[in-house]
Structures are given as structure tokens and as C-alpha cells.
Amino acid sequence: MLMSNRDRPARLHYMPYSFRVLQAGDHVLCAISGQRIPLEDLRYWSIARQEPYASAALSVEAELKARAAG
């Protein structure tokens, strides 16, 4: 039986300018907001923290939190 990747979170490896799918799915969850991000809309992530973000503003927020913590 074929399994559908719809409504399943993907597991990704984030690299400069792209990502590699480690486990098939159709979305990821923003590390800050928890918002569902369809893979075709994913534009922002941290290579160092291996986290996706729903927007540039949330990416900046995550970076500021990481700098403050560390």
C-alpha cells in the first residue's frame, strides 16, 4: 500500500540555499511560532540550529534569542 505524504511533517537537513529531505512529508513546523510551513513555501531556516522559520521576522527573532542565550 502506498503511503501519502500529505498532512505529514517532513524531516529536513538544512544547507546553504537548499535543504535535503530526510523523511518525506508535505510541511515543517516553524521553530518559533509552531506555524505549519508547506515545503514549497519554505524560505527561511538556520543551518547552525537546523530549524525552519515561517518568515524573515521570525528568523531574526530566533537569531536574537540564540545570541542572547549563548
Rank of each mutant, 00 (worst) to 15 (best):
Y53M: 05
S46D: 13
H13W: 00
D41L: 03
L29M: 12
P16V: 04
W45L: 01
L42F: 05
A69W: 05
M3Y: 13
E51W: 04
E63H: 03
P16N: 02
L64Q: 12
G70D: 15
I32Y: 00
A57V: 14
R8T: 13
G25P: 01
L29V: 02
A57N: 11
L12K: 01
P9Y: 08
I47R: 10
S18I: 04
R36K: 13
P38M: 02
N5F: 14
Y17T: 08
K65R: 14
I32D: 10
A69G: 08
K65M: 08
L12D: 03
S59W: 00
H13N: 11
H13I: 05
R49T: 13
P52N: 03
R8F: 01
C30E: 00
M1F: 11
R8W: 04
N5Y: 05
R6K: 15
S59D: 07
V21N: 06
D7W: 03
A24N: 09
A57T: 15
R8N: 13
V60I: 15
L39R: 05
E61A: 04
R49C: 06
D41E: 09
G34T: 09
S33T: 15
S59V: 04
V28K: 04
W45R: 04
P16K: 05
V60K: 10
Y44K: 09
Y53F: 08
H13V: 01
A69C: 09
N5R: 09
H13G: 02
R67H: 12
G70K: 11
A62K: 00
L12V: 03
S55M: 09
S33M: 12
N5W: 13
P16C: 05
C30D: 03
R6N: 13
S33C: 14
S55N: 08
A54T: 08
Q23M: 05
R67I: 14
N5A: 15
A56M: 13
R11N: 07
E51R: 01
M3W: 12
I47C: 06
L58P: 06
R6Q: 12
L2I: 10
Q35T: 11
S4D: 11
L12A: 00
A31I: 11
A66F: 06
K65Y: 02
R8H: 06
A24S: 03
L2F: 03
L58Y: 02
L22W: 14
S33Q: 10
K65T: 10
E63Y: 09
Q35L: 01
L29F: 01
A31N: 12
N5G: 09
Y53G: 02
R49A: 09
A48H: 11
R20V: 09
L42H: 01
H27W: 12
H13F: 08
A57M: 07
A69R: 13
E61T: 08
S46L: 03
R11A: 10
L22R: 12
A68S: 12
G70N: 13
A62Q: 01
V60N: 07
L12Y: 00
Y14P: 01
S18E: 14
Y14M: 07
F19L: 08
S4E: 15
Q50E: 15
N5H: 09
